[in-house]
Computed example of a mutant assay.
Amino acid sequence: MAEAAHLVVWLVGLFGIVGTVCVCVAKMVINDSIAYDEAFVWKRKLPPEAKSSKR
């Protein structure tokens, strides 16, 4: 019975870590914007109105 308890604790910890990573990735994808990509990834100069708008 102790082995089953250890297994449950490990599984809860594993799924907790995986769930945390999934939530962080989802937040990053939701908050991503084309303006950010163009300014910092593609190094394009954008007009001021493009930087303030979120798509």
Rank of each mutant, 00 (worst) to 15 (best):
V8C: 09
D37P: 02
K43Q: 02
S52V: 04
W42A: 08
R55T: 04
C22L: 11
D32S: 10
V8S: 14
F40E: 04
V41P: 04
A35D: 00
V12W: 07
T20D: 06
S53Y: 01
P47H: 04
E38D: 06
M1T: 14
L11N: 10
A35H: 00
S53P: 01
A26K: 11
V21G: 06
A39N: 06
G16W: 09
F15R: 14
P48W: 02
A2G: 14
G19P: 08
A2K: 15
P47N: 08
A26R: 12
D37H: 07
L7K: 15
W42V: 01
L46H: 03
M1C: 14
G13D: 11
V41C: 04
G13Y: 10
V8A: 14
V8T: 14
A2M: 12
V29D: 03
K51C: 00
T20P: 03
L46R: 02
W10E: 13
M28W: 08
Y36K: 11
G19V: 11
V12L: 12
A35K: 00
V21H: 08
E3R: 15
R55P: 01
D37Y: 06
F15E: 07
K43T: 05
K54I: 02
A35S: 07
L7G: 12
E49S: 04
L46D: 00
R55E: 04
I34K: 13
K27N: 05
C22T: 10
M1A: 14
S53K: 08
N31T: 10
C22M: 11
E38G: 06
